[in-house]
Simulated assay, not measured.
Amino acid sequence: MTGHEEASSRNATLEVKQEHNATSPGHVARLLYSIVATLLLASHTALATPCQFESQGEGRVAAIVDARSVRLDDGREIRLTGIEPTATTKQALTSLLAGRDVTLRGTDDTPDRYGRQGALVFIGESDTPVQSMLLAQGDALVSAEISDKDCAAALMASEAAARRQKNGSWADPSAIKNAESPDDILAGMGHFVVVEGKILSVRQAGAMTYLNFGRNWTRGFAATISKRTLPAFESAGITLKSLENKRVRVRGWVEGNTGPRIDVRLVGQIELLGANEPTGIRP
């Protein structure tokens, strides 16, 4: 056999071995593992982006109706879910959305009693909802109405970042009310406010549970939780009695006559503050 023939024979043998290796069970298994790993990674990446609910349609913003509602060019009125407005929300909303093409996402597109469709609003192809943008600028407050844990956490994180940086409304020293100053809270009657303080006692009276922040139960600030709301806290693994002597942040609408009250209807209205977590700005 000549040198050329020997070289050709070796190459042919190598090609046969490579072909055998490519079709061997071990190689196929490794290839399948690689494909599955790639698909799982892509799936995880997609799921890692919060608030990506089912699309509820698209449209162009024709008008800013109020601080939390816009009208699309097809006539639909959209209420931005997940936030409560501040004094600067409407102006910020106008800057962000006027004349823009948007995508709507949510879990339920049933109009409310005012005919508004609730949704998370995304500008163009963005994967960040406008609600998060407003919260990060300090131009809105989290309403706690989003039940999806990942999306709710993302909205809270946007608000927390604005709070730390004193953006927008958080630059105001009275942005967070002190639970030890009930008169300041009562001054916000009929408004959505954020209150921080320590729960001194948890008492039940009839169908209502009171989280008392003051020793004077009549005049001190309290968060009230009705019996029908208890299952939601139980599902979240929260025992109300365990909140005694805990520092919390409560958000909601202020009501009451002698002492200020916030009616807690959603678990997300109460945030447990860590021992080392700094409190917000106090008046």
Rank of each mutant, 00 (worst) to 15 (best):
R30D: 15
A42R: 09
C51A: 07
D73P: 03
I176M: 08
F53Q: 15
R100A: 03
L104Q: 04
T89N: 12
E84Y: 07
R113M: 11
L41H: 10
V121F: 08
T107C: 06
E15V: 07
G3E: 12
H44C: 02
L104V: 08
P231E: 05
F221Q: 06
S95G: 15
A12V: 02
E159S: 06
E125K: 11
V267Q: 03
V28K: 14
N276M: 12
E84A: 10
E19N: 14
L200E: 11
V202Y: 00
R30H: 14
Y210A: 06
Y114S: 04
A12N: 09
R76G: 04
A154V: 02
G252D: 13
K246A: 10
D139R: 07
A232E: 08
A98Q: 15
A154H: 02
Q52T: 04
G237F: 01
E5I: 03
V267C: 01
L211H: 05
L186G: 13
S226H: 07
G118E: 05
K227Y: 03
P182E: 06
A140G: 09
A67G: 05
T86E: 03
T107K: 07
I225H: 07
N21F: 14
F53T: 14
I146C: 02
R203S: 05
T23Q: 01
R10M: 13
S132T: 10
N11W: 13
A48M: 03
I262N: 06
L134C: 08
T2S: 15
T13V: 12
I146T: 10
K177Y: 13
T13D: 12
R76L: 04
D66W: 05
G26T: 07
W217H: 11
V70D: 01
V102E: 03
G75Q: 10
M156R: 11
Q269F: 10
A144F: 08
G106P: 10
L93D: 07
I78K: 14
F233P: 07
T218H: 04
G124M: 01
A29I: 12
S34Q: 07
Q137N: 09
A162E: 12
I199N: 08
L14A: 13
G190L: 09
G220L: 02
A223G: 09
